[in-house]
Design a protein around this nucleic acid. Structure first.
Lengths: 213, 213
DNA sequence: GGCATTACTAACCGATCGTTCAGTTAGTAT
DNA sequence: ATACTAACTGAACGATCGGTTAGTAATGCC
């Protein structure tokens, strides 16, 4: 039961119960479990312990719930692109900062990012979210291109393929990572970045062979 | 329009129109575009240019369509585990064969594997498919463990995480690979395996530093 | 106590859902 | 022409869908 608090921690006026954020969190969990399309407002109401119509006091529509959730995830990911580690320095370092930042966003906002990564495109809300995702992907691809031009990233593979595969790996976290599991968030980020960057860097095998003659 | 042919190529008896396979292919495409849950039998009927009830001549239920599609994908993936490259030799080589085989299955059966990778688990059909997927994942994880024990694969990362990240990358193909695009299938498989294996092998960077003193 | 605020309800709506049923249609074989 | 085979149809069904409406309920403030 989400007891709505005012910003200074005192109890707010009005009937106790869920607030918008409380509804949103339960909705995201249900959407992730059953899929957005297969989650009816009835199922959601059951999960909340409310009537269906009570939900409409908080959100105008099912679509609006989705839009709020997706915006949360997208804003966090877009925020990674604006951080100082992603805007200054060599392209390879910036790329590493973006990948690490993305992993942290995935872990910290696992429910809403999970929902984002499963969006289909059936509604206008979904299509707008997909457009924002594509813009993010393009920014990452540009970074890969720059790092390849610097010579610090393998250039035998098309930059858009590199970006997609790297994010394919990172995004797979939402399918199996569970907070409190065997891997803590920092260890996970370290592991993911290690594999991704080792796969992306200029291969050093030739260098070893060269040195050994 | 799928003209049903008998096995020797002559026209079969009965009214011309779709056969089961023809319905299945259109259904998979619709399921992948809109999501299984958001694809109504009405939408599917529109795509087929038939009435809704015509579909039930070919399949007993929407579920049965899904089951057939998922079985197609799963059988192909499971087949990779039974190939000689995956059953003989060093573990690292077997793992590489499995990864390459999986990429080829993804590319060759892109529609049905795409559908498989998006299964939620809302129905018994879906849950059975997920169980088969988990068994596949376990087999791959075992291979990673063996390869780590051989010393040819990095062992700084938990084998189940390694397997998941590698397949996360490989499975991401379904979200962006398009036959006839920039990357042909063999090139793609090569690129994916290069990044995955470079990310998975024992790091050679230390070796370079060591040789340089 | 009355008011404002905020959360919640049951009944209802029109539309759509997956499926069934009793037929019709279009081809081949005899 | 008739029988068989296989594909297809419109109407109907019970259930569920997202959403609306006119209320009720529970709190804090004055």
């Amino acid at each position: 039961m989400m007891m709505a608090m005012s910003e200074n921690g005192s109890l707010r006026r009005g009937r106790p119960g869920y607030d918008q954020q409380g509804i949103l969190e339960v909705a995201i969990a249900a959407f992730n479990q059953y899929g957005y399309d297969a989650t009816s407002m009835g199922v959601l109401a059951d999960r909340l312990g409310l009537s269906k119509s009570a939900i409409y006091h908080h959100f105008a529509s099912k679509d609006e719930i989705l839009e709020r959730a997706l915006d949360d995830a997208l804003s966090a990911l877009e925020g990674v692109l604006g951080e100082s580690g992603a805007t200054q320095g060599r392209a390879a370092d910036r790329l590493e900062a973006v990948l690490a930042g993305a992993v942290h966003v995935l872990v910290e906002k696992l429910p809403s990012v999970t929902l984002l990564l499963r969006v289909r495109g059936n509604t206008e809300v979904e299509r707008r979210a997909l457009a924002r995702r594509r813009a993010f992907d393009r920014a990452v691809t540009s970074l890969v291109e720059e790092a390849q031009a610097e010579g610090s990233l393998r250039s035998d593979i098309d930059p858009s393929v590199v970006a997609r595969l790297a994010f394919g790996m990172i995004n797979s976290i939402v399918e199996w990572y569970r907070p409190g599991g065997k891997e803590d968030a920092d260890r996970l980020a370290g592991d993911v970045i290690a594999i991704a960057l080792d796969g992306l860097r200029m291969p050093t095998s030739n260098r070893v062979d060269e040195l050994l003659g």
